[in-house]
Design a protein around this nucleic acid. Structure first.
Length: 178
DNA sequence: TAGGCCATCTGGTCCT
DNA sequence: AGGACCAGATGGCCTA
């Protein structure tokens, strides 16, 4: 089962559980034993807290559920944006997927590397032009599937003084580490 | 089994 | 008042 599919199944399960909530379960916060977060799951205590706050149960419950829905939607949007970012980064093997943090680091270093290339093109037009046409250049960088933290393949990155580890490297001239 | 990653819920804060 | 954003907490799944 693919990574994405797994997560979708999990999300669906969570949604099913959420939909099984009933506003009728609404109870004041006090009755549930205070403010401690007893579980991130779908236990009764959480349901009760969801619906029991300052104002009357049903209205508050609806508000909380709406807020949850918005938050879920917001996070989905964020994930979509991350997916879009993954898609424009250099090709990866079919089944490899960068984690969120890896995607951000990769993107940052990729931008940095492209910037360096442009700098080089400004100062050494002929060299840079040939580098950009060569295999292993920016347009054909490949992902090493062995590990998400592996370095770029090809030699051009070295020649351009690109980070040897696109996720981790932070040279004095490169952007700050995420 | 521990650790990493993730989705979700939740309450607080800020903004409109 | 309500929405957006954020960070903490939690549990599930997966992998080494």
């Amino acid at each position: 089962m693919s990574y994405k599919l797994r997560n979708e199944v999990r999300t669906l399960r969570a949604a099913e559980t959420l939909c099984s909530f009933s506003p009728a379960l609404s109870k004041p916060l006090q009755e549930t034993g205070g403010t401690s977060r007893d579980s991130g799951g779908n236990l009764p205590g959480r349901q009760q807290r969801m619906f029991g706050r300052k104002t009357s149960g049903e209205q508050c419950g609806r508000r909380r559920m709406k807020a949850n829905d918005r938050e879920r939607h917001r996070m989905h949007n964020l994930n979509s944006a991350l997916d879009a970012l993954r898609n424009i980064l250099p090709a990866l093997p079919e089944d490899a997927k960068l984690t969120k943090i890896e995607t951000l680091r990769f993107a940052r270093n990729y931008i940095w590397a492209l910037t360096e290339t442009l700098h080089m093109a400004d100062h050494h037009p002929h060299t840079a032009a040939s580098e950009l046409r060569s295999p292993g250049s920016v347009s054909s960088l490949e992902w090493d599937s062995a590990s998400p933290a592996e370095s770029w393949s090809g030699t051009t990155a070295d020649e351009l003084n690109w980070p040897t580890n696109i996720f981790q490297h932070a040279s004095p001239d490169s952007p700050a580490q995420l």
